[in-house]
């Protein structure tokens, strides 16, 4: 199968948005805002960049993905269903008692998920460990990790930021879903992270800043990260994907109240219609 184009990815990502909205609506709880901001970068990663088939077991022949901002897991579930790793029907079980699709990623119940996350700041350290192990084994796998902008207020993120360059984890590519919002308000008001790029550069990371909803830019950033490694760069890569919280649903966009609230059936219908129209 040839690599999908930016236009094809955009269309696919909007289809996944519909699944995200449907599953959160069905569950009557979940995090639409951060799932919708993250889905474009994640779609490009899973359908055009990552190599190999996820199985859950350690495997040096494939790339790996850690969703450190675990509350955006509906985006990951939509991707796993689209990839055929879980049935679409199962998306309706999100957050139900006994479901594999827990409210936050759970690698024991659903081993395709590579790290259990949900307490923010932890997934990046796990991704670092995976990158360290693969490097030690001489594997060519690349490790991708998505973090949220609110999440990087966590001290542990900065431990990882300091650590990854020491171990020359050029096989590690972190994507920041920089959507500018968190539960208590705009990130700039809650606890500003600016200047983000300068901070990560100062920690000796390769920093790439893009529009996180522009597929040409997303694909370009992933390609650049891969090229840097193949050309012998020893630095881990940090992609700042500037995104819009709730992207694709006008009444949710940049509205903090949609961080962790499920739409009612009527709102969901409107939202899905809008996404379909733009798809």
């Amino acid at each position: 199968m040839s690599k999908p184009t930016a236009a094809e990815l955009k269309k696919l990502s909007n289809e996944l948005r519909v699944h995200i909205l449907e599953m959160i609506t069905e569950a009557k709880s979940g995090h639409p805002g951060g799932s919708l901001s993250a889905i474009d970068a994640m779609t490009a990663l899973w359908f055009a960049e990552m190599q190999g088939v996820p199985q859950g077991a350690p495997d040096a022949s494939r790339d790996h993905f850690v969703l450190s901002k675990g509350h955006a897991v509906p985006a990951l579930y939509a991707i796993l269903a689209q990839k055929g790793y879980i049935p679409f029907e199962e998306l309706k079980t999100l957050r139900r008692t006994g479901a594999r699709l827990q409210g936050h990623p759970d690698r024991v119940r659903l081993p395709i998920v590579e790290a259990s996350t949900g307490s923010l700041g932890q997934g990046l350290s796990v991704a670092c460990g995976m990158a360290m192990a693969h490097k030690l084994s001489g594997s060519k796998s690349r490790i991708y990790c998505m973090v949220g902008d609110g999440e990087i207020q966590e001290g542990q993120i900065w431990e990882a930021a300091l650590s990854a360059p020491k171990f020359e984890l050029s096989n590690l590519c972190v994507i920041l879903d920089n959507n500018g919002g968190q539960i208590d308000g705009p990130t700039d008001e809650v606890l500003s992270l600016k200047p983000i790029a300068e901070k990560w550069r100062a920690f000796n990371w390769e920093v790439i800043e893009i529009d996180g909803h522009n597929f040409d830019q997303i694909l370009g950033a992933y390609q650049k990260a891969r090229e840097l490694e193949s050309k012998g760069s020893k630095k881990p890569v940090f992609i700042i994907a500037n995104t819009v919280k709730g992207k694709g649903v006008s009444f949710m966009e940049n509205k903090i109240e949609w961080h962790g609230a499920a739409p009612k059936a009527e709102d969901a219908k409107r939202a899905i219609e809008e996404v379909r129209k733009n798809g």
Partner: peptide, 20 residues
């Protein structure tokens, strides 16, 4: 790992997931 216990616990977990 340097004085980074929290990160060390996460990194060790990641290494375990990768077969170590």
């Amino acid at each position: 790992m340097g004085i980074q216990e929290a990160h060390m616990i996460g990194a060790a977990s990641g290494m375990a997931f990768s077969g170590k």
